[in-house]
Design a protein around this nucleic acid. Sequence first.
DNA 1: AAAAACTATTAACCCGGGTTAAGAAATGAA
DNA 2: TTCATTTCTTAACCCGGGTTAATAGTTTTT
Lengths: 200, 200
Amino acid sequence: MNGSEVSIFPGFINLFKGTFGFTDEEFSDLLSCFHIKHIRKKEFYLRAGDITRVRSYLNKGCTRSFVVDEHGHERILFFALEDWWIGDFESFYSGNPGTNYVQALEDCELLVITKEDFLKLEERIPKLKQWYAFKMGRTAAASLKRIEEIKTLTPEERYLKLLKKQPNLFQRVPLQYIAAYLNIEPPSLSRMRKRLSKKS
Amino acid sequence: MNGSEVSIFPGFINLFKGTFGFTDEEFSDLLSCFHIKHIRKKEFYLRAGDITRVRSYLNKGCTRSFVVDEHGHERILFFALEDWWIGDFESFYSGNPGTNYVQALEDCELLVITKEDFLKLEERIPKLKQWYAFKMGRTAAASLKRIEEIKTLTPEERYLKLLKKQPNLFQRVPLQYIAAYLNIEPPSLSRMRKRLSKKS
DNA sequence: AAAAACTATTAACCCGGGTTAAGAAATGAA
DNA sequence: TTCATTTCTTAACCCGGGTTAATAGTTTTT
């Protein structure tokens, strides 16, 4: 990837140069290892059983990550918008087939780096390793919290929480997926929304 | 406690002499440290805030152990019948006030040993320490499993599970407490039982 | 532009738990 | 024995999610 394309990755630049304080050299190092990948709406970026051999930065678009439970039902773990890293972290580290599916809900643009290049980069840029380790920890904790959430909160509480946390999702994600995320059926979500709109 | 009373503690004897292989000397050591305590139906053996300074073997009777949740509702952790050890293990070890309530559901007879005597005994009889440590681990694990159970199983599943695991409870524990254990209201339990009896 | 596919809502119905209040049955006490 | 208390069940009603099917609105495809 060369410098002239840089202007279309504002989030990516801001992340590494701004937030993370990469020097220009470090940043070009970084950039040269990535390549662009496009995924069309509804396409799968990842399926259960796949081995994750890359890291992908979601530059544009929206995805849903889910697993399939014992009964064959999809259980959505989270939606990703711009500036998320997507994939099956567990599979990336273990090298074993993963359990996650990742499907594009819009046409997506990814910045992809191979595991090998990423590990090399991490060696050269210690900050990167720290940052990613921190990120991973947060993600793992969030997954556990998410499962806990489904068990302890009512559907309505889960809905209101999502509305507060990621209000922008509702402009981009079909409600059927929101329902799946909340672990209820679409008609129930419709009724709930109607109920809530009457209250306020 | 002297030897002539021994015949009324068959479970206790069997536990230490039989299952656990105590010699006669070890057993009289043990016995001499215990004293008998009676608690009448509905009386509290322990309340939240109490510090547990003894261990009690439930020789006769039936109790319920519960905590009070954020909303002031009693949440029953388990029922104890003969041959259980009751109390707040956490408070026993930490020396801090505990969170558990233990209430007699029948007139109860306890074999009680003070913390000091128990610790002395443990030093003299290593087997005892091991056994109790094992026991504690199991109890802690069971508590976690129990909380998990309430979150993941339906009321009916929880009912059937209890029925299978401790069918004798139903002969001795008022259904209102069973309902509390299952985390439902008594009318719901009644309806459920009616439903189930029709099915079979 | 027309057809097909997808998405969201609604209705009608079931199901099971919560709530309240009433009454029946069992237990315990005077 | 009788009276009181406790325990259990039932009814009537609410509430909210699941299921199915119909409909209407949108988007995509051809």
